[in-house]
């Protein structure tokens, strides 16, 4: 339900900006919405595969925000700052993609091992330390 409100907010923000929808603010709002959807998936879902997929979604939202900032601040690459100001954001996004790939590989290996031992992928069954 709250996502509907958020989407209404997004459409509202898209309509109130006169010079065009595609600006930095709307890119950041889109990144925030996608990050929130991913955070909801990580917190609320109990299937560990969907939790991992939602994690990828959150990392993608962060990549989008980094690329938007890089694009918006590319022309601030003046002499007294880092001359590659625009590229730094994209390079950081590149690192995040690499870390996401490594995380997916290790996470899915853990899922396979866990399923082999316990025959389940439900996070509610992961309570060996609690017993």
């Amino acid at each position: 339900m709250d996502f509907i409100v958020a989407m209404q907010e997004f459409i509202l923000a898209a309509n109130t900006d006169a010079p065009g929808v595609f600006n930095l603010r709307n890119c950041l709002i889109l990144g925030g919405i996608l990050f929130s959807i991913g955070a909801w998936g990580v917190i609320a879902r109990r299937n560990i595969l969907i939790v991992l997929i939602s994690l990828e979604l959150m990392l993608n939202a962060v990549n989008l925000v980094l690329a938007s900032f890089a694009r918006a601040h590319a022309n601030l690459a003046h002499q007294n700052l880092n001359p590659s100001a625009g590229q730094t954001g994209q390079i950081f996004a590149l690192f995040i993609i690499a870390v996401a790939a490594a995380e997916a590989a290790v996470g899915l290996a853990i899922v396979i091992t866990y399923f082999r031992n316990r025959e389940t992928v439900d996070t509610r069954d992961m309570n060996l330390m609690k017993q």
């Binding site: 925030g32 919405i33 990050f35 929130s36 917190i43």
Partner: peptide, 17 residues
């Protein structure tokens, strides 16, 4: 959790706007 994620989204949108 839905309310929490919606609040997170709203806070981000509010700050950004």
């Amino acid at each position: 959790t839905t309310i929490g994620a919606g609040l997170l989204c709203g806070i981000i949108a509010k700050f950004v706007r």
